[in-house]
Design a protein around this nucleic acid. Sequence first.
DNA 1: GATGAATGAGAATTCATTCAT
DNA 2: TATGAATGAATTCTCATTCAT
Lengths: 188, 188, 188, 188
Amino acid sequence: MNHQMREDIINATIDLISKHGFHRAPMAKIAQRANVAAGTIYRFFDSKDDLIGNAYTCLEQRMRSAVLDTFPEYQSIRNRYQHVCRELVNYFLASPTEFRFIEQFFNSPYGATTRRERIRCDNSIISEIFLEGIQQRVVKNLPLPILNSLTFGPLTEICRNHVLKYFELNDHVINSTVEACWDAIRQQ
Amino acid sequence: MNHQMREDIINATIDLISKHGFHRAPMAKIAQRANVAAGTIYRFFDSKDDLIGNAYTCLEQRMRSAVLDTFPEYQSIRNRYQHVCRELVNYFLASPTEFRFIEQFFNSPYGATTRRERIRCDNSIISEIFLEGIQQRVVKNLPLPILNSLTFGPLTEICRNHVLKYFELNDHVINSTVEACWDAIRQQ
Amino acid sequence: MNHQMREDIINATIDLISKHGFHRAPMAKIAQRANVAAGTIYRFFDSKDDLIGNAYTCLEQRMRSAVLDTFPEYQSIRNRYQHVCRELVNYFLASPTEFRFIEQFFNSPYGATTRRERIRCDNSIISEIFLEGIQQRVVKNLPLPILNSLTFGPLTEICRNHVLKYFELNDHVINSTVEACWDAIRQQ
Amino acid sequence: MNHQMREDIINATIDLISKHGFHRAPMAKIAQRANVAAGTIYRFFDSKDDLIGNAYTCLEQRMRSAVLDTFPEYQSIRNRYQHVCRELVNYFLASPTEFRFIEQFFNSPYGATTRRERIRCDNSIISEIFLEGIQQRVVKNLPLPILNSLTFGPLTEICRNHVLKYFELNDHVINSTVEACWDAIRQQ
DNA sequence: GATGAATGAGAATTCATTCAT
DNA sequence: TATGAATGAATTCTCATTCAT
């Protein structure tokens, strides 16, 4: 198994699909952009659907790394929370193509069977923050999916607006938004 | 122009696309489900893309009505805000198919050129609430797109989780979430 | 039978087909240009093919009139010959649309079963000229179809070049060409 | 690129179109007759229009070869003229299908932008004959397009009549016609 | 008679996948 | 193992024709 080839195919897939959608990203073009033959894709993936699924899984890994690599394990709940939020936004802004792919994937039938939390951040980490916060009465006692939504819902939204050039973000605005997310979930 | 037919076609489109995605919703199947001939669709719409765009526009209208028909014009900012939030969630939960279509549309290249705010709520209404709130120092002085994201980001998310059966909503949870959104945007 | 309507439909047919070809001249557009409903065409013609055939027959009549209305019955063979030639060219140049239709018709499977002579000129007239000419040893003793081709072949060609704007005709050039055609058929 | 396949597709195209017209020669049938899959055609040609255009260009080449391969470069103007005429007629009679295609092409909107001279004979050769003839006062001093029409107009016509079985040609008649064409253009 | 909306068979074209080299 | 030409089912769209009004 040539791992570089696999990587190239996945990157080509993300590129084309994020730009043109699942349809209008023909295998032939994916192959071309990846500098492999069309048939070669099928040595790595069973079908186009399989390729799409694997492209997503691959992105999941990348995001997890981005967010967790610099995770400050021993800081306050608030700090850990804000770290995750900021790193996520930074990752998305640095990788607009991947961001578009992920959003498309999640909101299509392909991703309908995937919980959003999985990709956003390793469950154990963000859940741990929430659970610890609830226990310490720093965070509202709400179901985890709700806390997740209150956090990642707005962050994803502002990234979309920025990536699609509707509203440009900067550090100040990002910080304000993260702060507002924290206001949403913290015990008042 | 037979308006019932047009409506039927749009509903069939929303139905099939929300379930199977833009591809895998062939015109032939749309026609079949709408009980019209394949060619008939083209009397009302120029192309599949045009049909999809119009289906979205139609949903926009329906949502606007749902949210605005019972709008309490003369109540407090907080009450008006919470009204919009709750009606939106109610509408989405009552129309899961339409919700899925909208999410797919927005996150695909089709909807990339459409600002999300448009559909979520008539701009003038929600913007008015925010602007009035900022003026009265009840709402944080943040750019409108950020306030929008802090509001509709979480709401869309919890609807998605409910519609996809990951986390069941009830009035209590919805109220808590709306309250948390308010906490996110209100002046602390 | 509303004759004006029939005429309008035929004119619309000639117009559209001469410009866009047999395909790309849909019945709906023909109807539109003729200011009648699509279904109305079928009160006058059995099918599109029938319409095309009748459009041709109609043109045949028009041409015949154009050439014969001023026919100088009692002049010399040469004069009568040159009259027919010139009138034909004049008619074609004055009616480029009809010319294009006829050419298309004749060279398509539609017209494959139609002898060209029919339309070019009433058989009896031109044949009479040729036969008389042969008898008087003024015209070469060649089969009539050959004499026809030597006459109408070049004339059609120069009309095509003019109509398609490849080579502009004027009276002088037309006269020279007619003269040359006469040289081709006359006994040397 | 499999050149045999390309050739097969072009031949199938010429075959079907010459018999049934541009419409009524669906890509599916062309593919079938060429013993290739429908999609294969699109590896060689962008569209049906492109295929038709290329089929014509291919015929142009074939005709040119037919006429020029045996061209007697150092003979008299009259001999060279008559050679071109006869070879052209011979080629058409030997290839009635190709002849029908060419005629249809030229007289349809497809070929409206193509000067007829191009296909009939390599311009430089026939033009050279005419120009030389004019200079030597052997040929009438008429514009080249007119000389072209006086020559190829009748020849095409008699071929049409033969191919469509209205009037059977033989060497004697062909020679007489070529002679008559020469009479048309030669200085009297 | 006239209409034109509706039909649906048929056309061009695309593209996931296969397989001989 | 990698290729990419070839496949043909599936898709979008067109348009001659019908028929209820």
